[in-house]
């Protein structure tokens, strides 16, 4: 996973709320067996309009996406994060996310920044014409107009993003603890072993 520290660039002022993962990537794009190439299906219905924001000269390839409440709701498909990543998006800024989506985003090196609606409104305005700067280390979103918004992030997620860590290798360090738990489980709740 590519580490993420600071991202500076144009932010797509998308702004809609309850953007579900069927909108981010429709189900017929889920039939592959690899993670690559999902960007082609990203926001497919919206991008059928030739004047859509994602393919506009100004915002094509922009690294930041600004959205409304409950971004990424619905299906657990990680394809949504793969599709955003393949579009070149490294940061999403929204007032809230579905739990599954925000987890999937972090696992793919995409930072889900949570900011209040008032900050979103201001960034939507700036994003029309100017870039936005996101600094994960300092947990800030700033603009050239002296706007400065700070955001909260779970320390473990922050570390994973900053260092580009793979969670499985972190968990494998707890191999002995997992083994101990399994032994205790076999004693305490032996009926958990499937009877077939």
């Amino acid at each position: 996973m590519t580490p993420l520290g600071e991202v500076d660039g144009r932010a797509i002022p998308f702004g809609l709320k309850n953007v579900d993962t069927d909108v981010i990537i429709p189900a017929h794009w889920l039939k592959g067996t690899t993670r690559e190439g999902m960007g082609r299906g990203a926001f497919e219905a919206i991008r059928k309009d030739p004047d859509n924001i994602f393919d506009s000269a100004e915002f094509k390839g922009a690294p930041i996406l600004i959205a409304g409440d409950n971004f990424g709701c619905g299906s657990s498909r990680e394809h949504a994060a793969w599709a955003l990543g393949d579009l070149g998006i490294r940061v999403v800024i929204a007032p809230s996310y579905s739990d599954i989506f925000s987890g999937n985003a972090v696992k793919n090196g995409i930072l889900p920044v949570v900011l209040p609606q008032a900050a979103i409104d201001r960034l939507m305005e700036v994003a029309q014409t100017d870039p936005v700067h996101v600094d994960l280390e300092n947990q800030t979103v700033t603009t050239m107009f002296q706007d400065r918004f700070t955001f909260e992030i779970d320390p473990f997620r922050k570390m994973c993003l900053l260092e580009g860590l793979d969670e499985i290798s972190i968990t494998e360090k707890s191999d002995a603890a997992i083994g101990d738990y399994e032994k205790k489980l076999a004693q305490d709740r032996p009926w958990l072993q499937p009877s077939l």
């Binding site: 299906s75 990680e78 599954i100 696992k107 499985i168 968990t171």
Partner: peptide, 30 residues
């Protein structure tokens, strides 16, 4: 699959996960 929440109907703590987490559970059962 996000509708894993379904199994809560029999009192299981059940939830949907993304593919990275599927791989994580396959590899570590955690």
């Amino acid at each position: 699959d996000s509708h894993t929440a379904c199994h809560g109907g029999i009192g299981a703590l059940a939830f949907g996960i993304g593919t990275s987490e599927v791989e994580h559970v396959l590899a570590t059962q955690t």
